[in-house]
Design a protein around this nucleic acid. Structure first.
Length: 501
RNA sequence: GAGGGCGUAGCUCAGCGGUAGAGCAUCGGACUUUUAAUCCGUUGGCCGUGGGUUCAAAUCCCACCGCCCUCACCA
């Protein structure tokens, strides 16, 4: 299969493959040992002039300034960027390599660290080792690629041209690392429950459907790990958690990606009050992990995470922002009608929920725990002993985003079975958390200890802690509709994918 | 799903009825302290796709595709 360059730029670069080969140089390089990261190399630089310190490093050529018998280029690796001066006389035979060097090629460099007369940290090269040819033509050097579509579809371009992109995903990794260490320290065991489930339960969301051929079985991609993690409680795993990729077949916007990461934990003998403490510990700990102060800004908001955070009941927030109480149907209907919320044929609690979402959620700058939800909205949650119409549930809101959701878990199999059959009128089954799962009921019949359970949206937490405005900044490869390759970027083979019909 | 915006060279963008443009990048040349290097020259286009209006369409109209924003849906 012959390589077909997709434009003249690639044609030119392809020809350089031959020219490199003619010089006995492998354009795809090989192992390069004893490499010092560029960040470390920079630290060896003297105050001025050349040192006697030899350095050996490697990276990608991001810019290049030819100057007759010398060539300056900037070499970058993950740790930083440094200028290299390759003088024809100084690098001797390797000058042939420099002559064939293109932007975004990768090379190894050996030389002396120093500074030019303008003070720029520079490797005065003695050797240049060709490591990898870049066949594609890179974006413009000053602005770089700006088109969001290019940056998302080809995230590597985003990473190459903007060091903060990798840094942001490293922050994400640090946050996840902290959560794992913290929970391990608290005695939680990490488990991995099925992503493919015969019944997609544990949340209210439309699932993705898939199929197993050998079993001839329709399966769903999970919308939550909840029902499996509770089985672990039944079995005696007293503290258990999962960092679960979940999949929801819903719309896409700044805070929703079809697949995202949910941390769920369950603690036997706990309740939702205990979950609030853990939530504070996790969020505050994660903030410290990435070096954030308790007072911080996120977008236009000034947030103070100094614990304990405000705890406000669902009812008092409803009263404050919608002017009605959740147990007063006339008030609710009036308030809903006043805001144009359709009420006909809808269960009163569904209307309450819509009213709450319309009036309260967006104004919750927080951090604030919204506690004690209308019970009918919470089929997996234990009811308050003092008032069975209220469920021991909280949601954590920050900057208008829901960041966490937790309950005192319902462990009564008889009530659970009943709640699974109860659909609120005016609500589609797919919009309800109540989906009959007899296997789960059977598990509860074997005795699940009273417990607290917590889910934290990891992507949104990372957004908050990295000042990211959209979830796409923290999901490394967010979903985009596939399309025939963008102009100028063609595959090496000639079998173009067909556009979706 | 509804409304709005955008799609022009590899990239960043101008042009908005009358021969398709600039900067960077590329290619050739000069230059051993440049750093958005500079200087001289050069190449580069199904103007997203398909219809239509017009003597004439990148430009106006319609449909479709993709992306973005707002709203809706949704945690």
């Amino acid at each position: 299969m012959a390589y077909q360059p997709s434009n003249k730029f690639e044609q030119v670069r392809a020809e350089k493959l031959e020219r490199l080969a003619a010089l006995g140089i492998d354009p795809w390089g090989s192992r390069f040992d004893d490499r010092q990261p560029i960040g470390q190399v920079r630290e060896l630089a003297p105050e001025s002039g050349e040192s006697h310190i030899r350095v050996r490093t490697a990276g990608r050529v991001l810019s290049k300034r030819d100057s007759g018998k010398a060539c300056f280029f900037d070499l970058a690796d993950k740790s930083g960027r440094v200028q290299v001066l390759a003088g024809q006389k100084q690098i001797a035979d390797d000058w042939k390599v420099v002559e064939l060097l293109d932007l975004w090629d990768m090379v190894g460099v050996e030389g002396i660290i120093g500074r030019t007369r303008t003070g720029e940290v520079t490797i005065f090269a003695h050797r240049i080792f060709f490591l990898t040819k870049t066949l594609a033509h890179p974006p413009e050097k000053y602005h770089g690629a700006q088109d969001v579509e290019i940056l998302l579809r080809h995230r590597y371009i985003d990473m190459i041209q903007d060091a903060s992109v990798i840094a942001r995903f490293e922050q994400r990794a640090k946050i996840l690392g902290f959560i794992r260490r913290f929970l391990a320290g608290e005695g939680f065991t990490e488990v991995e429950t099925p992503s493919m489930q015969a019944i997609a339960g544990g949340a209210a969301a439309r699932p993705f459907i898939t199929h197993h051929n050998a079993l001839d079985l329709q399966l769903y991609l999970r919308i939550a790990p909840e029902l499996y993690l509770k089985r672990c409680l039944v079995g005696g795993m007293e503290r258990v958690f999962e960092i679960a990729r979940v999949f929801r077949n819903e719309g896409i916007d700044a805070t929703h990606n079809p697949e995202f990461t949910m941390m769920e934990l369950y603690e036997a003998y706990g309740d939702y009050n205990r979950m609030m403490e853990i939530t504070e510990q996790i969020v505050v700990g994660a903030m410290k992990e990435v070096g954030l102060p308790m007072q911080m800004t996120y977008g236009e908001y000034q947030l103070d995470f100094t614990p304990p955070w405000r705890r406000a009941t669902y009812d008092e927030l409803l009263a404050e922002h919608a002017g009605c109480h959740m147990d007063q149907p006339e008030q609710i209907l009036a308030a809903a009608n006043a805001r144009g919320i359709a009420t006909a044929g809808k269960d009163i609690d569904l209307i309450v929920s819509e009213l709450f979402e319309a009036t309260v959620e967006d104004v919750l700058i927080g951090p604030v725990f919204v506690i004690d939800y209308p019970a009918s909205l919470c089929p997996l949650t234990k009811r308050k002993t003092s008032n069975p119409k209220v469920a021991e549930r909280f949601e954590l809101f920050v900057a208008g985003m829901e960041l966490a959701n937790a309950y005192t878990e319902l462990n009564d199999p008889i009530l659970q079975e009943e709640l699974f059959t109860k659909q609120l009128s005016g609500q589609k089954e797919e919009d309800s958390m109540a989906k009959m799962d007899l296997e789960f009921i059977l598990a509860l019949k074997h005795g699940m200890p009273p417990a607290g359970g917590l889910g934290i949206g990891i992507d949104r937490l990372v957004m908050l802690l990295t000042s990211s405005e959209t979830i796409r900044d923290v999901v490394i490869f967010p979903l985009l509709r596939p399309r025939p390759l963008s102009a100028g970027i063609n595959p090496i083979s000639d079998d173009q994918s067909e556009p979706a019909s």
